[in-house]
Write a protein that binds this DNA or RNA. Sequence first.
DNA 1: TAAATTCCCGTCAACGCTGTCGTAAACGCT
DNA 2: AGCGTTTACGACAGCGTTGACGGGAATTTA
Lengths: 330, 330
Amino acid sequence: MPPTLRDVAQRAGVSTKTASRVVNHQGEVSDETRARVQAAIRELGYRPSKLARGLVTHRTDTIGLVLGDICNPFFPEVARGVLDNAEQTGYNVFVCNSDGNLAKETRTLHSLADHAVDGIILFPSLEIEDFLLSFAAQGRPVVCVNRPFESPWISRVMMRSRDGARQATEHLINKGHKKIGMLNGQAKPATRHERVRGYLEALGANGLPECADWIISGPPVLEQGRRAAHELLMQHPEITAIFAYNDLLALGAIQACADLGRRVPEDCAVIGFDDIPLADRVSPTLTTVRVDKYALGQLCMQRMCEMLSSPETLFPPVEIGVELIVRESA
Amino acid sequence: MPPTLRDVAQRAGVSTKTASRVVNHQGEVSDETRARVQAAIRELGYRPSKLARGLVTHRTDTIGLVLGDICNPFFPEVARGVLDNAEQTGYNVFVCNSDGNLAKETRTLHSLADHAVDGIILFPSLEIEDFLLSFAAQGRPVVCVNRPFESPWISRVMMRSRDGARQATEHLINKGHKKIGMLNGQAKPATRHERVRGYLEALGANGLPECADWIISGPPVLEQGRRAAHELLMQHPEITAIFAYNDLLALGAIQACADLGRRVPEDCAVIGFDDIPLADRVSPTLTTVRVDKYALGQLCMQRMCEMLSSPETLFPPVEIGVELIVRESA
DNA sequence: TAAATTCCCGTCAACGCTGTCGTAAACGCT
DNA sequence: AGCGTTTACGACAGCGTTGACGGGAATTTA
């Protein structure tokens, strides 16, 4: 029973269309009429229904944010960047976890489309999605992070992951490490990912051997880091350093080292990626590759707004830099 | 240009109403007709518009989750609990940060109402909200965490904060501390909050002095913990232990101790609240009061669903337990 | 002063869906 | 055969809003 535009119109003695004009700041209304309508709006506490409006305008002032897992400390700051920017620009945000699971991600995206979101910001799983393309083909902006989609409707925001991975690996090499393992955080095609590439590049550029067995893939969570590092160090005791896809895996690796009586960094150096909060508080403090997560989130939302306000326009990919942060663990 | 119900109906040679019946599994449709309609749905890839449906049914299958700050490590797990449960039950969730700022919270709540969310899960600021009450009065469920609202339409989920605070403080007392400061995380009426109460209770029960100056309030973030603890320890060097409203403040306090050359826990014991992830990894590891954050989130959403599916019903407050986790910092 | 403009505002249909009601056919019963 | 009841479906209105269009009054122009 919230008041409708009709209520406002009646009270102000005008047509609903005129009331609508006032609400939407469309001109063509005399000052006096506008004042009357505005008074009615105030008195009734009228607020336009986004549903009804969306039904006719095809704009709902909502967007979807699909990320891997909000519990991964990488994401809250990203989300915060998106959310803050969205609040300022008048958008509300559906937040969803995909868990890097394609089926779930697909369901989620459909569900967002059902709600007629204006656009989607996505940290995608690896595989290309038919649905995404068809969503984008409807003229709905998609901002896609860290995955090189080739579609004019999909805008890309890319972290310099390969650079970061390369720097990290080279840092290990400079420290004298020659057998360097990697904990990958992606399920599927290991060697395709940028961070794996950077790692391999660094090895190659420095004439070091690479070994497929030294890369273990799994979900990017702490417990997996522990398991995988445990396995890695048991099967390949010669390894003296580990580069991890993200900080959680690195933290897990550090734990595995503790389990195995290996000291970090003396017996096994560990380096992560993301520079999550508290990375400088854990023991040993974590050497990692910093990403400005908040800025990343803001950037995504900003790009989303640009796409929304100028359709047809093609936006070039944005790259965002990373920075090696050397602490105790390597 | 996604297909509409009319498209489906035309293709199946029935009225939109009949198509609607099939979509919504309302009976009164012959098997044969149903099959034809379902075929049309499949062939067209039809999906009902939640907007249009919401306009008439007043149900949008969306809820709002308003929390303090998703970057506070307490919240991601809570959100995850809500989100997971919501996904299972077919809801999408708008996530919003209030920053404990009443004005922002109010704007946010209005904005959620504009989108006609079915309900709101709220970690509220202290002050009672007219709006909240009117929202709830419209028969829209509100689940309110940790604040004793007195309204039949608002369901309460309460952590046993006072218990936890009391246990924590008593733990400090048992360790021999007599001058115990507190870092509060709420802006406004310091002594009203449950955690402050628990702290004061413990002091009183053990015949220890309390001192208003020993409680410093501020936003529950790390930097504030550092500042506040710094101030506290400078002005009252006699203090040998600090109980913090949450782990972030506690972590800040530990940093302040480091700044001041005080060793933790020898020179100053510190105890937090929440048991955030990595609390067991920081140095020194953090003594804290554990809350099952994921379960809390799930519980909130579960309660939300119950309220949604049986309106009119009154639900009693739920309490959720806490547990003192003793580690190195105290 | 007539014609052309501009300004202000209203009517109507539509967005995609569901609720209410009506109705024709089929069925069961006396 | 006549009656009521059930089954299966459609017509229609309406949810709250906006866009396309139209028209009268006021203002300008010739």
